[in-house]
């Protein structure tokens, strides 16, 4: 009785209810699709808005003196030469320090699993370090290097960038080594090669495309970092390549110039922002192109 009375209305209006439900389902499906397409459009629009702003406002300052002159007082026509060289020097050195350390640590994570718990601990900590706020790394280097030394230095900036660089390389090295087929290692071991030769000559060699990509991406990431450099290399108005003295860098110069009240400094900030974004995005595209080319070559 109960079930009959319950099923009665559904039976009576069965096709109608189904029809209404089908319409509702189609409507929900359509509106979700529309919303998703809109979300994608919004993200694309934001990216293009940023790039468009950088190009329209920054291109005006792209001239030879910008690359040849050091930063100068407002109104005297300075350039960005010291900031560019400072950025290159600190980023490059950080990569030189970070690459071997990061690769060795990546090898440790992927090849030394016999160490047990400590390997998973190192992996966990390295992943945390990957997303630790970069300003904290700046504070850390300030406290252990700048404060004891009594002055800001390019070396401190380099080390802060290296700390940010290492975990990215660790992650990609480990991931890429894991992709090396077991059979390749076994073949090398069977030929009597010692473990370290297997890792260096066989595993690393076949994973080098992926690791190179990781290094390029890490390079792109640290070259735009500002917060850790504020407390370590500080910035320098003059041309300086001395690692033991404060050193200018593009991001810090942009930060100082963008907030200033002088039109030509703001113009320089936009030009610097354009330069650094083009460099970072080009490195990213290059790295990804490299990975896809390498990936398809392996298959």
């Amino acid at each position: 009785m109960m079930s009959a009375s319950q099923s009665q209305p559904t039976d009576a209006g069965g096709w109608q209810r189904g029809g209404a439900q089908a319409v509702r389902r189609r409507l929900v499906e359509r509106s979700v699709s529309l919303l998703c397409a809109m979300a994608t459009a919004v993200v694309l629009f934001l990216l293009f808005s940023i790039l468009w702003t950088l190009v329209t406002r920054g291109a005006g300052g792209l001239s030879l003196p910008t690359f040849l002159h050091s930063t100068a007082a407002p109104g005297t026509g300075g350039g960005l030469a010291n900031a560019i060289i400072g950025s290159c020097e600190q980023t490059g050195l950080a990569a030189l320090i970070g690459t071997p350390v990061g690769m060795m640590a990546g090898i440790y994570l992927s090849e030394f699993s016999q160490d047990g718990r400590i390997v998973s601990l190192v992996r966990f900590v390295s992943d945390m370090l990957l997303s630790v706020p970069s300003i904290l790394v700046g504070l850390f280097i300030y406290l252990i290097i700048v404060e004891p030394a009594g002055h800001f230095s390019g070396m401190a900036g380099t080390l802060a960038l290296a700390v940010l660089f290492i975990p990215i390389v660790v992650r990609t090295t480990e991931d890429m080594l894991r992709l090396v087929p077991r059979a390749m290692r076994e073949a090398a071991y069977a030929l009597g090669a010692p473990g370290w030769r297997v890792i260096l000559n066989v595993c690393l060699r076949s994973a080098r495309g992926g690791i190179m990509t990781g290094i390029l991406l890490a390079l792109a990431r640290i070259s735009g970092e500002t917060a850790p450099l504020l407390f370590t290399s500080l910035g320098n108005l003059n041309w300086s390549t001395n690692l033991n003295a404060p050193m200018a860098s593009l991001p810090v110069t942009i930060y100082q110039y963008a907030g200033s009240a002088y039109d030509d400094w703001v113009q320089m900030a936009w030009t610097g922002a354009l330069l650094i974004t083009v460099a970072v995005l080009a490195t990213n595209i290059l790295a990804r192109w490299w990975l896809t080319r390498n990936g398809s070559a392996q298959q």
Binding site: I107, Y108, E111, L136, L139, I144, I166
Partner: peptide
């Protein structure tokens, strides 16, 4: 090979421990 493995293993472990040291360092120093 055995000597090489020893040195290589030591370097890899040093690099791994260095990461732990940096993290512990950040915590303690701050």
């Amino acid at each position: 090979g055995r000597f090489g493995d020893l040195v290589f293993g030591m370097l890899a472990r040093l690099a791994g421990w260095f990461i732990l040291l940096v993290m512990v360092g950040i915590v303690i120093v701050l």
